[in-house]
Amino acid sequence: MNDLNELQLDALGEIFNIGVGRAASSLSLIVSDEVLLSAPRVQIVHREQAAEILGRSALIKFSTVSQMFSGPFSAEAMLVFPETNALEIVRLMVGPHMSVEELSEYEQEAMCEVGNIILNACMSALADLFHVSFDSTLPLHRFGDAGLLSLLDSSDEPLVLLLQVDMTISQQCIQGHILFLLSVPSMRNLTACLNAYLSEQGLA
């Protein structure tokens, strides 16, 4: 099923690039700082491989925010940050006037907001360019281990669309990952949307 051709993968990367660009614009307003982005890397892998790829990165403990999106295809979208960066993001969001204890209290809520912005920006880019719409659940914040990534292990979805973007906020190298967990029928529908988009652009 991992059979998107080079142009389809490139198109998917570019569409996510637009989404992440929108997200960075919103995030930079929230943290009152510039957000530097790398070019997104898109891979479609089995979920065991996704856990392995994330496990190989420098992340040991994760802070994750996930949301279910449903529409022409359904996906569980997940934003993954190193746990240590999550508190720093919250500190940037609320300013220097809070103690660490107070910050911890707001962490879950703030990370949900960050996840909501970033994941919705990515999905809105897909929705706008594919001329479709998605419904979404409320964001859910969790902590996880690199070795387990329990969310991936417990998921029934066999495929993961792995989008890796490096985000640098305020000189802190914060490496964020965005994951989309898709079932085989959803992947088929995503491919159909992608083909329709390429054909509309006169590229397929």
């Binding site: 929108r22 614009s25 982005l37």
Partner: peptide
């Protein structure tokens, strides 16, 4: 010509 639409 970019998706990076930040003010900065």
């Amino acid at each position: 010509c970019t998706a990076n639409i930040q003010e900065s």
